[in-house]
Design a protein around this nucleic acid. Structure first.
Lengths: 129, 129
DNA sequence: TTAACTTGTAAAGACTTTGTAAAAAGTTGG
DNA sequence: CCAACTTTTTACAAAGTCTTTACAAGTTAA
């Protein structure tokens, strides 16, 4: 259902749009064909967002999945990491990582249509599943 | 799955890119057509990295495969060997041997702008999936 | 509008990991 | 045994990562 999958998704299908490519097997990210070097936490955060592209991921879920924090922990480290990610995404930052006030963040594929299905569903549809 | 193969890979396919050639049968390495003389450990380290080009190899795996060390052993000998390898790779060192902080090292083929995806996935991508 | 709350940002600190040079230890062939 | 070469250790230096702090800026609801 709405649950985020836990654990290692290194076998997930690669993500690709006009500017961003993400290979979860090789833990490699390209932005306009240039290698992006991300720290581990940055990578895990981006991976989680990208693998749920189009979905709002609550702060709590991110802190849970990436940091293992429970709901009681108060920290600003997520914000700091989002900021660094955005910086590394350059001019596309605002396009890609959207803040959903009071809830969390959402990754949007580049030039996402107004109504956008999550990556997993789009992939399934494209494959005729 | 993600396991590194152990043992002797002298029969593996040779590696070749714009600057580097590696023949595992003859244990011969050429850098810009010049023969590179590597010590045994240097050769084994480079061979292991090259045979898994594009993949991150954890320090532990390298220490296991090349040195036979277990996870408990603390040593800096891997770093020293990487350094000497890089020195012998000259100006291409940083291009070829990437440090993945907190994890290990990764050999990248020269000018590898795109991911090397498995055949099945490349086919799917090519078909527009 | 204002008060309460949420997010953005810069900078600093604590800590861990990696790089490097040099010396010590181990190995090999003559 | 000696000399040359290879490998490992040692001891720091350098670099990287993550978190917190403190405050600015933005958002919402009354």
């Amino acid at each position: 259902m709405g649950m985020l999958q836990a654990g290692n998704n290194s076998h997930a299908m690669p993500y690709r749009d006009e500017h961003l490519t993400m290979d979860f097997t090789q833990q490699a990210v390209l932005l306009d064909s240039e290698r992006m070097t991300l720290t581990r936490k940055e990578y895990e955060l981006l991976a989680l967002l990208v693998q749920h592209a189009g979905e709002i991921i609550p702060r709590e879920a991110l802190l849970m999945q990436v940091w293992g924090y429970g709901a009681e922990i108060r920290t600003r480290t997520l914000d700091v990491h989002v900021r660094r990610l955005r910086k590394k995404l350059g001019g596309y930052a605002d396009q890609y990582i959207e803040t959903v006030f009071g809830i969390g963040y959402r990754f949007q594929p580049f030039h996402a249509p107004r109504f956008c299905l999550p990556q997993a569903i789009r992939t399934a549809v494209a494959l005729g599943a």
